[in-house]
């Protein structure tokens, strides 16, 4: 499961973008275009290989996928 940040002993935040994209049946290319980021960055987001997500990007993702930030982000304690 892709994790957004490997916290130091406090758990990690997991990005469930791929799950929501599958639910909404949205293709990566379309989502990247609607959010205004490159497909490469979207791929990095999906794989969790990013250090952070801007509120602006998160808001656009929520708008494009018609969901709440909580639907995309999940905290997993160690």
């Amino acid at each position: 499961m892709p994790d957004l940040d490997e916290g130091q002993g406090g758990g990690r935040v997991i990005l469930r973008l791929d799950v929501m994209m599958a639910r909404r049946k949205v293709r990566g290319r379309d989502l990247a275009e609607r959010v205004g980021i490159t497909e490469q960055n979207l791929s990095l987001l999906k794989s969790g290989k990013v250090k952070g997500v801007r509120f602006e990007t998160l808001a656009k993702l929520c708008q494009a996928l018609d969901c709440q930030p909580g639907d995309l982000l999940e905290f997993e304690a160690e």
Binding site: I37, N41, L44, L45, V50, K51, G52, V53, R54, T57
Partner: peptide, 10 residues
């Protein structure tokens, strides 16, 4: 360091 941090933020 800042530049590296910003590179990892989407």
């Amino acid at each position: 360091r800042l530049s590296e941090d910003l590179e990892g933020i989407v």
